[in-house]
Design a protein around this nucleic acid. Structure first.
Lengths: 336, 336
DNA sequence: CTAGCGTGTTGAACCGCTTCGACAACCCGA
DNA sequence: TCGGGTTGTCGAAGCGGTTCAACACGCTAG
């Protein structure tokens, strides 16, 4: 393995000079720099990450804790991950992947100085991991909103606003009886905050507009969708507008509606809350509120890097929802 | 930050003794060990990963290169990843996540001594990454089979055998005209080896059994599935057995067959090559050849760890396919 | 009684890099 | 001409571990 000393020798300078060429923390004359760079090139030198971490107290690695359990929204999770990884690379950082349940891993990587910072996905209202990372010396950004952020930064789609926007859209297009087909029951039971925030926004707006709103949980299986749709059509037969917030169930919901003779885009208006590519991959292009998963991942990294640099205070960023109208929208009974 | 010296002081021993307690590489008397362990506990000591890596030339991290691009088989990829991460933890290793396209990352993490070993997914026949990792000093295991493994270990499902098993199943149940609905065209164009291996096994077995076989590529979209199914029904109307090797397209293929009035499990026998949970999540439980993604990930880690320990030679492990009959199987015209 | 051995512990070198303080060389203005 | 500031380079002290050679000690065997 070639070391910094080899490079120094080859270039006829001291090791510190090589180090300064690499880091740019001191001015180096052009000719010297050139000699060093040539030597680095020739020897194929790469600094030893461990040595660097030891000496500089910087690892250039961030930890990402992601839910790998096979479940509801795998493709969405992938987009978050992709966003985090690509943006981290922009900051010359690599990503260490932790699984959601590995709470001990948080202490391992922080106390062991394996990472400079952390990003944690899929935060629940009362998440046991939050106090752990709050106590770490590395900055952390949460994707999602816990009840008490304990001084940590958070980023997420503004689901409450999304709920309002969805209802507003339906009301404006003439609907007076709307419904939500949402997350699976176990997600709701976990008090995953996004589900509750969406519902809050939705009910607020509905109340303000004098509109009824029915809520159905929905398992992300064909059977779950069948049940949710059938129950909805039975208990709230006047429903003409449905908001679906469940990527995995969406195709099954649409399929069941079709089976029940309900034509989406004519008899029924459906607004999906999901990534745009999911909205476009359905049998018809769905009117949707985008869940910009990759962007959120990137923002999370931006935020965590900002905290690494200066000592900015923690902040919470809620991204404004954007609704795009496509073919699943239909005028409602109250349409003018 | 508490260091090993703090622990040594607290326990009244030398730093080397603490180190040996931690590593177990030297015998330490029970009382001494107890004192040290108590001190570690009390101080909440964690060895500094960088220092350890520097001194021991071991990072306890492996790199995993996974395709994060949003595409065909995201959930399957997740399963591989989950397998790798959980098994790595069994070996006290963490996982550094690299994206498929980050070829430079390979050199970065290997030359920079960031990792002890690598696992690479989604290997293509003529994969540019293979020579890079073959030249690295860290052992690598490939998930998939390149044309020339260059001395690297490989692991994968035995897709060739899977092709044979699938055809054998169809033949045995009375089918004489079978088809493959396979990967998207661009996957085939990339010469991803699993697709070609499956086709080889399939054609071999079909030839031996005197059975015709039609092949359709298929985009993982509703439209792609429509086209594949329609083309198939038009060009090979006698087909009574279909093998689907495309997780993402599977539901759409089934939907289109239904739309065309073809009843799977009666008029048509369908064998899926996919993870079991995907097979079970369809409108009817599918007869399938399991793609044991999580297991493959685990085996990959086992193999790479074995090479880290001793200097075992490289090996290629192809997991035997297992076909499970479910409700999508139907007797064919030649059934006795 | 001593040589020889095994066991448990230690001191110190070393891993490869960063960074601080020192210094030589040069240029400026007084 | 000289004091004082820049600019570019260097030496050496860590950073926090691992590991090797050495050694102290208590035993056993000769």
């Amino acid at each position: 393995m070639t070391t910094i000393d080899d490079v120094a020798k080859a270039a006829g300078v001291s090791t510190s000079t090589v180090s300064y060429v690499l880091s740019g923390k001191r001015t180096i004359s052009a000719p010297t720099r050139a000699r060093v760079e040539r030597a680095i090139e020739k020897l194929g030198y790469r600094p030893h990450a461990g040595a660097r971490a030891l000496a500089s107290a910087r690892t250039n690695v961030i930890a990402l804790m992601a839910p790998l359990r096979v479940g509801v929204n795998v493709p969405v999770i992938m987009q978050f991950v992709a966003g985090v990884v690509t943006r981290a690379r922009d900051f010359e950082h690599d990503v260490l992947l932790l699984t959601q349940d590995d709470v001990g891993g948080l202490d391992r990587v922080t106390s062991g100085s394996m990472v400079d910072a952390l990003v944690m996905m899929d935060i629940e209202a009362d998440d046991p991991r939050v106090p752990v990372v709050a106590a770490a010396r590395q900055p952390t950004v949460l994707i999602g909103l816990p009840q008490d952020p304990e001084g940590l930064s958070c980023v997420d789609l503004d689901f409450e606003a999304a709920g309002r926007v969805a209802v507003r859209h339906l009301v404006r297009t003439g609907h007076t009886d709307v419904a939500l087909i949402g997350s699976p029951p176990e997600v709701l039971r976990r008090h995953t905050s996004y589900a509750e925030r969406l519902m809050r926004g939705l009910r607020d707006q509905a109340r303000g507009a004098g509109v009824t709103v029915t809520v159905e949980a929905c398992d992300a299986t064909p059977a779950g969708a069948v049940q949710a749709v059938d129950t909805l059509l039975a208990t709230a037969p006047d429903t003409t507008g449905i908001i679906v917030h469940n990527e995995a169930a969406l195709p099954h919901v649409l399929a069941r509606l079709a089976e029940r003779g309900v034509t989406v885009g004519t008899d029924m208006s459906v607004v999906a809350v999901c990534p745009t590519d999911v909205a476009l991959a359905q049998r018809i292009p769905m009117t949707s509120i985008d869940l910009p998963a990759e962007d959120i991942g990137k923002v999370a990294v931006d935020m965590v890097m900002a905290r690494l640099g200066g000592d900015q205070p923690s902040e919470t960023r809620l991204l404004a929802p954007v609704l795009t109208e496509r073919e699943s929208s239909a005028p409602g009974p109250a349409a003018s």
